[in-house]
């Protein structure tokens, strides 16, 4: 870890790798969650598998937690170091003349996502861990859909979720193609990566927004 913190390029590449990993996770997460819109049985089946499969629970889940924690901790480290690299600020700095708002504010879109993750863990992950590994309640393969739908009765929660997804979109509008550049991928395919990135950054958060709204309006 100290080696990664010492070299600017090691920091950059590791940030890019953790981000690419999160991009894959996010796609997977959307697919599983979207099944809840299609059918309760399918969602229960997916969730039961993910929730009880030892590979998912004890290998992939810890990797994911590490990936998320690494990503935001490195995000803060970079932010602090980058601030220090310009100790006297400009009186006039026209960032908009040469870069996008998203690219200059990754830390802020990231902090909103982090706050959302707090809420999201409180909603789903902590109860799940409590259910399985603290209270050792008997597994009911059909409990998941009900637990999900119940959460989206609350309009405040739905609004907070949707707001967070807007910031996720902003984060990814720059982040997707940026992570490729970070790991050294810049070649004739890069224009295609850029376009895919824009589509991904809009469609994935939109998918999550749709799921949240779907369950809210379904519960009315």
């Amino acid at each position: 870890m100290s080696g990664i913190i010492k070299s600017s390029i090691a920091r950059k590449v590791s940030m890019g790798l953790s981000a690419l990993f999160l991009l894959i996770f996010l796609l997977q997460h959307l697919i599983v969650n979207f099944s809840s819109v299609l059918s309760a049985e399918m969602f229960n089946e997916f969730s039961h598998f993910m929730g009880t499969n030892p590979l998912v629970q004890f290998v992939l889940q810890p990797i994911l937690i590490f990936g998320v924690v690494f990503h935001f901790v490195m995000g803060f480290i970079l932010e602090i170091r980058n601030n220090r690299a310009r100790d006297v600020k400009y009186v006039q700095y026209k960032g908009s003349a040469n870069s996008s708002w998203m690219s200059r504010n990754m830390i802020y879109s990231g902090i909103v996502i982090l706050a959302f993750l707090g809420l999201h863990f409180y909603d789903f992950w902590f109860p799940e861990i409590g259910y399985k590994y603290i209270h050792f309640l008997p597994e009911d393969p059909n409990r998941y859909y009900g637990e999900l739908v119940e959460k989206f009765h609350d309009p405040i929660r739905v609004i907070l979720y949707c707001l967070a997804f807007v910031f996720l979109a902003l984060h990814l509008l720059h982040g997707f193609s940026s992570s490729f550049q970070s790991v050294g991928f810049n070649n004739k395919y890069s224009p295609a990566v850029h376009k895919t990135g824009k589509v991904y950054a809009i469609l994935i958060p939109l998918g999550f927004v749709f799921i949240a709204l779907f369950h809210y309006f379904n519960s009315l």
Binding site: N82, G95, S99, S100, S103
Partner: peptide, 8 residues
């Protein structure tokens, strides 16, 4: 500083 790929 580090590079954030802003392209500026």
């Amino acid at each position: 500083g580090n590079c954030s790929n802003t392209g500026a």
